[in-house]
């Protein structure tokens, strides 16, 4: 194949990829490259180059945003359930109904003040019986916070800041963004979803395999890999807005991040392996630096809440922890 011909094929592939939309690049180039190679239109080297062109597009975060999720609300919910089941199989929930009820009332109230108050099922919160300092959310609205994280808070608005940050991850569908597209694409290439109304046992088996992979990708992001710094910044920014909308002090997030930073520093001094949030989040001090503190000062809470009443019920639910 001549160089000119190869250029023509590459250009054609690029145009085709563009025509299918930016997101269509993911998988489409490799697919076209392999077809081109099979038909003898391009050689192996060119096919490899084209394949490499899409390696930067490995997760759904490139195509998922709040407005165009490839998953229906129902599917987000089912992925969320299996992620939640994985977490709840690994770690026991606390047996403290008053605490769990308080965290749910607080969290669900904050969710109402978010941009996405209603999900397929809704937001529910569970407290994990772990000393690790951590919190995370599934795409289905299941939000987890550890006893260790709650112990680090000193007031209702600080606890609210942590929960609002997790709600922000759900609102922005960050969990789904961690799914590696290639797996889903490969499932499609095998044509396994063509006629699910008449699903065969083999097809069900295959779809279940993809479902398991999808779940594993999200769990991996939540407990091991973490999201990008930009994603965490976005969640912090949204959390601050939610706090202000209810009437909580937006600076609560700064106070709790400072305490997290000290806890992390102490952990590192002991040369401990990063655990909990340390493994998956940027340094808390860096997150504080990213918050526009001057803007935070201008962010007036919409109403003045009764701080004494908030303190009383916080102490009642969390005090003995």
């Amino acid at each position: 194949m001549t160089r000119a011909n190869r250029r023509l094929v590459v250009a054609t592939v690029a145009v085709l990829a563009l025509l299918t939309g930016c997101a269509g690049l993911d998988g489409a180039i490799g697919e076209l490259a392999s077809v081109g190679e099979t038909l003898g239109l391009i050689d192996g080297d060119t096919a490899t180059t084209l394949d490499l062109a899409e390696t930067g597009l490995t997760t759904l975060s490139n195509v998922v945003n709040a407005a165009s999720s490839p998953f229906t609300p129902e599917q987000e919910y089912f992925v969320g359930r299996s992620v939640a089941a994985t977490i709840l199989t690994e770690t026991d929930p606390v047996q403290n109904p008053d605490l769990v009820s308080y965290v749910n009332l607080l969290g669900q109230t904050l969710a109402l003040a978010s941009e996405r108050p209603f999900l397929y099922h809704g937001y529910t919160f569970e407290v994990l019986d772990s000393d690790e300092i951590n919190a995370f959310a599934t795409p289905g609205g299941h939000i987890f916070i550890t006893v260790g994280m709650i112990r680090l808070t000193r007031s209702e608005d600080e606890l609210a800041a942590i929960l609002a940050h997790e709600i922000a991850h759900v609102v922005e569908r960050h969990g789904l963004g961690s799914i590696r597209t290639a797996r889903v694409i490969s499932a499609v290439e095998e044509g396994m979803f063509e006629a699910l109304s008449t699903v065969t046992p083999e097809e069900l088996e295959e779809v279940t395999g993809v479902f398991g992979d999808t779940t594993a990708d999200v769990v991996d992001a939540l407990v091991t890999r973490g999201y990008s710094g930009a994603t965490e910044r976005e969640a912090d920014g949204i959390a601050v807005e939610i706090l202000a909308r209810v009437g909580y002090d937006p600076f609560a997030i700064v106070r709790v991040l400072e305490r997290m930073d000290r806890a992390q520093a102490a952990e590192y001094e002991g040369n401990a392996e990063p655990r909990g949030f340390s493994k998956t989040h940027p340094r808390p001090q860096a997150r504080i630096n990213d918050l526009e503190l001057t803007e935070l000062r201008e962010l007036e809470p919409v109403s003045r809440i009764n701080l004494e009443a908030a303190r009383r019920r916080y102490m009642e639910a969390v005090g003995d922890l």
Binding site: G24, L60, V63, S68, F78, S82, I185, A187, F193
Partner: peptide, 21 residues
């Protein structure tokens, strides 16, 4: 819409339901 979903991924999601769970 700009930056949206390939149809393939959308179709793939179709499989996640009660039966699959």
């Amino acid at each position: 819409s700009p930056g949206t979903t390939p149809r393939e991924i959308a179709l793939a999601g179709r499989g996640f339901n009660e039966q699959v769970e």
